[in-house]
Amino acid sequence: MLATERESLRHEIAEMAEKYEHKRDGMMPILEAIQEKYRCVSDFAMQEVARQLGVFPTEVYGVVSFYSFLSTEPRGKFAIRLCRTLSCDFAGKKEVARQLENELGVKFGGTTPDGLFSLEYCNCLGMCDHGPAMLVNNDVYTEVSPELVSEILEKYRRMFGPASQLEEAEAHHG
């Protein structure tokens, strides 16, 4: 991470901590905001949050590692979560899972080399009457079929023109 990026992250965390009066109960909203913007909570971010809230960095790590929507490693720009729970399983999640892997070229738990998509399972999304259900960031998709998978992915690829894709890939690897 560049020094200027660190500086701006430090500044953002300080501002959020101020809003929550540097109290510990500000932890979750702060971590969630960092995750949303940076797709992970880095070591540096955890140290800064700890400093601002007056707790040990290990405690922040304890929280980040507990929740499945927080991560220390960067997720894709678009985090795909496919429901693996019973009703969606009945509705055909296995076929959808296979096609997702085919289209993305990565297995569950992986991230595409361009950093655009990460793929993982999640538990019941509360859409069991319209399974198989899937989240892409905060967007919900229901009754997903293998045929629909490429269409959905294409939509997100298009939101990201070739030029910006390149930038993203660099940011991800650099």
């Binding site: 510990r24 500000g26 979750m28 909203p29 969630e32 995750q35 809230l53 499945s68 999640c122």
Partner: peptide
């Protein structure tokens, strides 16, 4: 307040822990 993906946080005392910024 938002959760962050943990079924056990539906249990009321775990929910409170989560609101307080803990596991």
């Amino acid at each position: 307040r938002m959760g962050a993906g943990a079924y056990v946080c539906g249990e009321e005392t775990a929910l409170i822990e989560s609101l307080e910024g803990s596991r």
